[in-house]
Amino acid sequence: MASSHQIYKLITIAILFLSFTLTSLAENTELASATQCSSGPGASSCNNNKESKKLKFIAIASILAASMIGVSLPLFTRNIPALGPDRDLFVLVKALASGVILATGYMHVLPDSFFDLNSPCLPTNPWRKFPFTAFIAMISALFTLMVDSYAMSWQKKRLLKPQENVVGETLENGSKEMEKENGSIVSDEAKSQLIRYQVIAQVLELGIVVHSVVIGLAMGASDNKCTIRSLIAALCFHQLFEGMGLGGCILQAQYGGKMRWTMVFFFSITTPLGIVLGMLLQTVYSPTSPTALIVVGVLNACSAGLLNYMALVDLLGADFLGPKLQGNMKLQSMAYVAVFLGAGGMSLMAKWA
């Protein structure tokens, strides 16, 4: 699918851009050292390169496993009737995971961006004279809406156009169905919904991948064993449930095997890849250098706007305002409980990560 390839080109470009920007610091190490800010009191007691390296390898393995389990679980259970996309249990699990994604944007990514772009290591003018994080997050949310809208329009135009092997039949309710040569009948409405699910899955993964690389990079570049130790458990929880949310979207998108497992691979590998990248760049990458703070802060703000939009509009809004939950008040109430549990649990993780 052409749009899928374009999405992954964007992901690759974003990762390469981040890598190039950070490696370029090697050419100006003296400047980075001169502008580096102190880590604060008490940080030296936790700084241990040997111990932190061991913890990083543990983090790579555990986060990779948690990511793979989380995103693959909905795909492996698709043949279990009780866990099908049309079942109540699937709706509740998806609501829980959507709450996790929402809290990730508001409680983890957005505050990180505020911290980076308001750092005392950056010049007061303009960084503390204007709320760049909120502005960039707003633009990111609007840009996500544009991508969402244009992708839907393009996909509908491409997939719903008349074809020679499609026979249109007008039903009593005025809707039109298309019958292909193999005899399967798919309504325009169902096909539009399928396109919608595919766009949601791709855009959501883009936001998650950007954030995952950034947080992995920060962990890989850190020598603070205390921070890394607490991050391992928090990130495993985060990747597990965020992966379940993404996996549910991939399942609903009904991708073929190749596309499905490509998305699983990208989600699973990005945080460990970020950790490895941070370890490789540790000698030249200073988390408190102006360049790093600006790049990471801007990427976090973009990711926050995207995740918040996707969680509220494409995941929670679409489900809670859809016919299934609107027609079942009991299920709707249970879904709200699941959302608050997911968001609350992920918010609690902000204490450690």
Rank of each mutant, 00 (worst) to 15 (best):
S72W: 07
K225S: 07
S149H: 13
V284A: 09
A221R: 02
G278Q: 03
V166G: 03
I195Q: 11
T35P: 03
E164I: 01
P272C: 12
G99R: 09
I275L: 05
V313P: 02
I11E: 05
K180S: 08
I139C: 13
L145N: 14
V93T: 07
V210A: 11
F265I: 12
Q155Y: 01
Q252T: 03
I208F: 07
M219A: 09
R196T: 05
G278C: 00
N28L: 11
A82D: 08
G84E: 08
V313W: 11
M334D: 07
L277Q: 10
G245D: 13
Q282R: 09
N165E: 12
L341P: 03
D112K: 11
S230T: 05
S303H: 05
R229Q: 04
A301I: 00
G274F: 08
C226N: 03
T271Q: 12
G247M: 01
V209G: 08
Q36D: 14
D86M: 02
N48H: 13
K351A: 14
T262W: 10
K9R: 05
G220C: 03
L22N: 09
S45H: 14
K156W: 04
P290G: 06
A335M: 00
T35Y: 13
N49C: 02
N224C: 15
N48T: 00
G207R: 11
I228S: 10
S113I: 02
M107N: 13
I11R: 02
N328K: 06
L307I: 01
Y285L: 15
L246E: 04
L341I: 15
I7S: 04
A32S: 06
N28T: 11
Y150Q: 15
A43S: 14
A350W: 04
V91F: 15
L171Y: 14
G305T: 06
I69G: 04
